[in-house]
Amino acid sequence: MNPLEQAFAWVNDPLNWTNPGGILDRLGEHLVISVAAVAIGCLVAWPLGLWLGHARRGGGLVVVLSNISLAIPVIALLTILPLTFLGFGRAPVIVALAVFAVPPLLATAHTGVLQADPEARDAALGMGLSSGQVLRRVELPLAVPYLAAGFRTAAVQVVATAALASFVNGGGLGQIISAGFGLGMAVGGGQILAGGVLVALLALLADLLLAAGERAVTPRPLRRARRGQAGRA
């Protein structure tokens, strides 16, 4: 059997879905880790990015942060964080992924506020809105398409990188691939391929869904082919 047939056979075995550590288990782990990481990333990055944009500050910081984060291997944080106070388990994996979700979320929140029409801001200030009200009622709504674009980039990237958690036995769909390698190429080749397909499908599906979401919250005239910088894993 060639690897492709092996992969089909592997996916077609119902036990590979329902067994402990089967596809459904791993998918659940993958989603829990990803959702938690993106949520933490949003909680940290959005308030900070919106405030920095509102205060017209920190542009350099945002750029430097995203450049540095590009150069740090995900595996490094995945292996370093469990050895810190976070301890082993799911927490360090989630934090590691959240760290990489922050730069795109921060950058888009920052530009989202910066690009808000200055005349709208002036009009709001002239109507007597306080600085905080301008941020909440004018700049934030105008930044929503940018926030959505950043959310998509960050979430797809987290879903993709969550596959690497398998290197530190952190669960997720990547675990299927590493288990396949553990079996050796002759036996596990199909499982490796099947795991790869599952991980890839999940990432592409997340990208499609979030692209639809991004489109839904972007006013029609602003809808241009603004491809996000998804992925880094």
């Binding site: 990547g174 396949g180 992925g231």
Partner: peptide, 19 residues
């Protein structure tokens, strides 16, 4: 290809090109 996780790309290639 960019959206597909690198781990998956390696998994696609490995059964054919080996380790």
């Amino acid at each position: 290809l960019y959206t597909v996780p690198s781990l998956a790309l390696f998994a696609f290639v490995a059964p054919y090109l080996g380790t």
